[in-house]
């Protein structure tokens, strides 16, 4: 088909005209695609709604049988034993202890690295180093679990005599290494958002790089750096495979990081591996535990989101 032409009434020259049929079809396609793209974006809201619905409906069934008070105050967690106890704080303690160990590793190391990358390293150095950090983030978590259980724990046991084969210390440290790239990238992002004028002002006063970093850049990027820590915490709390493999599955109050203890996530894995009938109380516990985990990470994520918005507004 040859495109239609018609004489221009002014000049008599033959001019290309656009087929009205094509334009009409084009308009229909445009409208359809607009809807299709919107629905794809809206799907993400449905995913969240699905998560909330599943966790909430199954947790409500759980709380019909177990009171919230005992869920929050009991100090034992024995859903599959004869003498059933449902004290979520047992699992929460394991989760918090391992995550805090992770933060103890990742915060100092991540902050130093972020300052180094943002304030010290030349651009080429920075662009060479960052991909290596990304590689750490790309390692499958199950591989880190193996590494923690079968490589690091035996080495640590040489130096720490009381260290059990399953413990919270080594998985915590490994999780710290895992969240390190993430903390570095978010906090470096915040540091680089600090305007150059502030830095120049500091240099003009005769500050060293380090002084500029600690007295100007970090205070300026404070909310963003804090957000990085919180997001790191959120990741550590939700991390599953490392603790499921290397921290043991004994649900007890985690008072000693040298011993193993179950976390929320490793408990869910433990129950999922077993043959637990649908609708049983043990089945429902993983949703109650999941709800607890979701609320914790949700709170962290929202707090971090708000903090990051804050520094974006400032600069």
């Amino acid at each position: 088909m040859v495109a239609p032409v018609s004489p221009d009434s002014r000049t008599g020259r033959l001019r290309l005209t656009v087929s009205p049929v094509f334009l009409a079809r084009r308009r229909v396609v445009d409208r359809i695609m607009r809807v299709v793209l919107f629905l794809s974006a809206a799907l993400s809201v449905l995913v969240t709604a699905g998560i909330v619905y599943v966790l909430l409906s199954e947790s409500l069934k759980f709380f019909a049988q177990v009171s919230i008070i005992s869920f929050l105050t009991d100090t034992q967690w024995t859903p599959v034993f004869q003498d059933k106890h449902f004290g979520i704080m047992t699992l929460v303690s394991g989760t918090l202890v391992s995550s805090l160990i992770a933060l103890l590793v990742a915060i100092p190391a991540g902050t130093v690295l972020a300052i180094y990358l943002s304030e010290f390293a030349r651009p080429q150095v920075r662009e060479t180093i960052k991909p290596f950090l990304e590689l750490i983030a790309g390692v499958p978590t199950v591989a880190f679990g193996y590494f923690a259980l079968l490589f690091l724990t035996p080495i640590f046991q040489i130096f720490i005599p009381g260290l059990a084969g399953f413990n919270l210390l080594v998985p915590g440290i490994v999780m710290g290494i895992m969240i390190l790239p993430y903390i570095v990238s978010v906090s470096e992002d915040a540091m680089r958002a600090v305007p150059a004028e502030l830095r120049e002002g500091a240099y003009a006063l005769g500050f060293t790089r380090l002084q500029t970093a600690t007295r100007v850049v970090i205070p300026g990027a404070f909310s963003g750096v804090t957000a990085a820590y919180i997001l790191g915490m959120s990741r550590a709390v939700g991390e599953t495979m490392v603790v499921a493999i290397a921290a043991g599955q004994q649900a007890k109050l985690a008072l000693n990081p040298l011993e193993g203890a179950a976390t929320i996530t490793s408990y869910i894995v433990q129950i999922s591996l077993g043959d637990v009938p649908h609708g049983s109380i043990a089945y429902l516990t993983i949703f109650a535990a999941g709800m607890t985990l979701f609320l914790m990470t949700f709170a962290f994520n929202i707090l971090a989101f708000w903090l990051r918005q804050k520094y974006r507004e400032v600069y």
């Binding site: 040859v2 495109a3 290309l16 656009v18 087929s19 094509f22 334009l23």
Partner: peptide, 12 residues
Amino acid sequence: GLHIRGIRNRSE
């Protein structure tokens, strides 16, 4: 500009 106007005939 031709493609945008639906003109796809190769020789044209």
